[in-house]
Design a protein around this nucleic acid. Structure first.
Lengths: 329, 329
DNA sequence: ATACTTTATGTAACCGGTTACATAAGATAG
DNA sequence: CTATCTTATGTAACCGGTTACATAAAGTAT
């Protein structure tokens, strides 16, 4: 691997001049520049990014901490972050935290030691104190953390009300909710939206709340149980995977979707189009969320002012077969 | 941020001694070590990984190039790589190539400039010449590239024969194959397995080969077309997503799965359990593939000998409802 | 003609670690 | 008692870039 000193020697100039050519700053004579570029070409010289990082304290790398890339909600988010940061020449270090605070802390430490320029965090557990100690730019994605960092989230509460109301409007009156893990802020927000809407509709009944863990099988079992114990004609699942679990349970009991039990999920991942019947869902602008977070982070890194710190993106109802009963209004 | 010199000053020793304490090499007096550790504690000193990288030329970082993390086959693979490399204290830079040779080359260049210790490549387009110029350890994952690098792949050819034979055994005689993109080596291997098995069974008919692009909608359209033009009672799809496309097409025509048309996919992603009927598939040990590749890479980086360079993992038939016709044998 | 600005280039310190080499005291061997 | 080894520590070069500062020639204003 050729170094800048090799180039300098070959071109008959000092390293400073080569550096000036590379970075296009300072004064360099046209002739000299040509010679330097030739030397670079000839040696196939590529500047060492690590040396540059050490001096400049900026690595053109960002950290992205997600709970689990295998959760089908995240790949698209990650992809968006990668796409956008790449435009600005950043690479992405991917970290899976499994929602474990210990892993998050460890990763943050490692990322700092590697001089990442910024971090996008998808978490809801890290304490304000911990995170604000960070001296790197941070953007919080998908989970409201607190108000000191720029954030990008979707309207969980509103989406939940929308889903609940939709089930009501197609005729459901005994609407159950499969709630996600209680330690996940978004799951709680969605629950609140459901609860408030149900109360407003005068349909609230706490027996209709089913606890899920965002996984297929556990949800299916929980829903089987619930369907046996309570009368239910609509299910609002806290995410799409749990909606599939509900679908499986309903079908297993020989009930029809949506005629006997209508189902709506949450997130709008591609999976919802693959089931039979296709699942209605509250669709979040997943890619856009990632893209906006990435843009915010880049701006923050580059010291540009942010016009808007907190972004709450709208969600939208996507009605498919699982809530299309014809006209039972 | 405290540096090693700050620590040295506070502890009243030289930087060399601090370095010795940190790296546990060379001689250090017990008393001295205690003082140094105290100083480290007091200053909350964390060694600067970049400076270390510059000198040691190893970054404890690897690059992972995949076609597209949004393709549901890859998240689990990525997760496995992350899990395993993390055990050995590596972090992972994730790169999406979209199977574009230009992006791959760019990423490889950037990764090298960042002194990554190794690269895991999921590609089949990069020429031998290009890749062997790399002076970093490389492991090829999921796609056979050539024989100069360690590789981890699953038995695509065998899996395809298995799938085809399975359809035959449950009574199908007009077995179509949805082939993946022709530039993807795996897709071609699967096609060959299908073709050879069909020929051996005396059922080969080239009209039964449908070209898919690994996507849902295009596949569905192609299958609708094929079902109208040809008699078909079994479909072997080149991946699971295309199997869902086939399922949609069959159902849209009012045909029953598996009674009228049996369907089997390939990959074994979680999606296959979420459809109705659940999809039979050829299951690849996805997580294991990623884990093995990661272990190979770490070994290569650390200069350990590899007992085995090329790993071809077995696949297995997972029979579910989409190929369970009762006993029409 | 003098003073100041612009252009052009080089020297060397710096970023924050690691380590080869030098030095020296105490332990052990012959 | 001297030679050699082990233990302990420091000095300074090094990794490969960037840049402050110095120097000087050429251009421009007064």
């Amino acid at each position: 691997m050729a170094t800048i000193r090799d180039v300098a020697k070959l071109a008959g100039v000092s390293v400073a001049t080569v550096s000036r050519v590379l970075n296009q700053n300072g004064y360099v004579n046209e002739e000299t520049e040509k010679r330097v570029r030739q030397a670079i070409e000839q040696l196939n010289y590529k500047p060492n990014e690590v040396a540059r990082t050490l001096f400049k304290k900026t690595s053109k790398t960002i950290g992205l901490i997600v709970p689990d890339i295998s959760n089908p909600f995240f790949p698209e988010l990650v992809r968006a972050v990668e796409d956008v940061t790449n435009i600005y020449d950043y690479t992405v270090i991917l970290c899976n935290s499994d929602e474990k605070i210990e892993k998050e802390k460890e990763y943050i430490e490692v990322l700092k030691q590697k001089y990442v320029d910024g971090i996008i965090l998808t978490t809801n557990q890290l304490e304000l104190a911990e995170v604000s100690e960070l001296d790197v730019p941070v953007v919080v994605l998908d989970r409201p953390l607190n108000h000191s960092f720029p954030s990008v989230i979707a309207d969980n509460y509103g989406g939940a009300r929308l889903a609940t109301r939709h089930l009501y409007e197609i005729g459901c009156r005994r609407i159950a909710h499969i709630q996600g893990p209680l330690h996940v802020v978004n799951a709680v927000e969605r629950f609140k939206g459901y609860r408030d809407e149900m109360q407003e509709l005068g349909l609230w009944d706490e027996d209709l709340v089913i606890l899920g863990n965002y996984q297929l099988n556990q949800t299916k079992e929980a829903v089987l149980q619930a369907l046996k114990e309570h009368e239910i004609d609509g299910i609002f699942a806290g995410n799409d995977v749990m909606a599939v679990g509900a679908l499986k349970a309903v079908q297993q009991l020989g009930l029809r979707v949506p005629e006997d039990v209508a189902i709506i999920g949450y997130d709008g991942i591609p999976l919802t189009e693959m089931t039979t019947p296709e699942l209605s869902t509250i669709s979040q602008p997943i890619y856009e969320m990632g893209a906006i977070a990435a843009r915010l982070l880049v701006k923050k890194i580059e010291g540009q002012p942010l016009e808007q710190i907190h972004h709450v993106l709208p969600v939208k109802l996507v009605q498919r077969q699982s809530t299309s009963k014809g006209e039972k209004k």
